Simulated scan of single mutants.
Amino acid sequence: MFKKLEGIRYQLIGSYLYAVYFSLLIIALILFFTHSVIQPIWLSVEAIILALIVTALTLSLVGLYVMFRQGGNVKDRLQELSIFIATLSEGKFNATLLMKESKDEFSTLGHELNDLAHKVKGQVKSLERMAEEKSEYAKQAHLAATVEERQRLARDLHDAVSQQLFALSMMSQATSKIIDEKPEQAKEQVEEISQMALQAQNEMRALLLHLRPVHLSGESLHEGIDRLIEELKQRCSIQFKVDVDSELQLSQAKEEHIFRIAQESLSNALRHANASNIELRIKEKDLIYIYISDDGDGFNLDEQMNAKASYGLNSIKERCEEIGGTFDIKSKHGEGTYIDIRIPK
């Protein structure tokens, strides 16, 4: 209730009452001074008090009504501006704020916001054209990038899978030597070996996922993601829940960016999340909505986004921004990861 009293309507009412009572104080001082110094017959103390009470009640009641109505009008117009700004923040740059025929500050601000929305819409179109051009350049540079990608995969194999396999080999040899003398310790080491083997397997699946072509190669986005998920189902025990709109009408550049975003997100989940279930939804309404979640280990978002290991997340964010979209990610240790992406059509 007290928070509501902080609204613009009640601030206007408070300012009005302050002005009324301050004015009454000045009037009271003048009347009492006149009564004391000049001492007119008609001006008695009782008359002064009665006049002040009647004036205070009248001005307060009439003023409260007028200011409540006027404050409500100001509040409604501010709310219209707030809703319009929230609409723009969601990427709906086609929206237009309808303003009343007036020349006050609210109308001026509304026209400026409409101009801003128009300019941002033009910038988004420019970003889309740049994305189209970048897509063409990316195809031309694909052969040159192949060598670099092979080198990166070689480093990943050495840093992750190769080291894990070496550790498995060492632990297996150590376990074989103590299996008769210390069966309980050997059992624990076997379980640890099993976990390391599973992690190495997930690393290999993620690296194999990166070996897929970046482009859809003539497929629709729906077909490309379906084929990607089917391949993953054959290679791992993770449960996938996929819902992709089959009637998406997108440019080739946007389809390729969205496909790469999905590919990168699934790769991150396979390598780091240790998840049992992954959900992927792509829907078209007033925007393109992309939702990706897993029930894995989760992580500290602030630490991860600032770490060198966050290359995958930063790559997803950059791809999203290149086509004018917004990127939001939520994660917490033990509660999984949730990615929410919205891209203008």
Results as ranks from 00 to 15, higher is better:
Lys254Phe: 03
Ile316Ser: 02
Arg152Lys: 15
Phe32Arg: 13
Glu90Pro: 04
Glu219Met: 13
Phe299Glu: 02
Ser162Cys: 05
Pro213Tyr: 15
Ser82Lys: 11
Leu78Ala: 01
Leu208Ala: 12
Glu318Ile: 06
Ser310His: 04
Leu248Ala: 13
Met171Lys: 08
Arg155Lys: 07
Thr175Gly: 04
Val20Ser: 15
Gly91Trp: 03
His210Glu: 11
Glu230Ile: 12
Ser107Leu: 00
Gln201Lys: 15
Pro183Cys: 02
His142Ala: 13
Asp226Glu: 15
Arg150Phe: 02
Asp328Leu: 03
Asp156Phe: 07
Glu148Phe: 05
Leu52Glu: 11
Thr337Lys: 02
Ile323Cys: 02
Ile48Gln: 06
Val124Thr: 13
Ser126Asp: 03
Leu5Ser: 14
Tyr10Asp: 07
Leu208Gly: 05
Gln249Ser: 11
Gly336Lys: 03
Leu153Ala: 04
Thr108Ala: 00
Leu270Met: 08
Gly334Asn: 01
Leu153His: 05
Asp294Val: 08
Arg212Lys: 13
Leu266Ser: 06
Ser169His: 09
Ala117Gly: 00
Lys317Pro: 01
Phe240Asn: 06
Ile13Pro: 07
Trp42Leu: 11
Val62Met: 09
Ser102Phe: 02
Asp328Ser: 07
Leu287Tyr: 04
Leu24Asp: 12
Ala144Met: 10
Leu116Val: 05
Pro213Glu: 11
Glu132Tyr: 05
Glu279Phe: 03
Ser251Arg: 03
Val242Asp: 05
Ala86Glu: 08
Gln185Gly: 00
Asn300Gln: 13
Lys330Gly: 09
Met171Thr: 07
Gly72His: 02
Val74Tyr: 04
Gln140Cys: 08
Val74Leu: 06
Gly324Met: 03
Thr96Asp: 02
Ser217Val: 06
Gln39Tyr: 08
Ala51Phe: 14
Tyr65Arg: 03
Lys182Met: 02
Leu17Arg: 09
Asp159Met: 15
Met130Gly: 00
Phe84Gln: 00
Ile282Phe: 05
Gly71Val: 06
Met67Cys: 09
Gln185Lys: 10
Val37Trp: 09
His210Phe: 14
Arg235Thr: 09
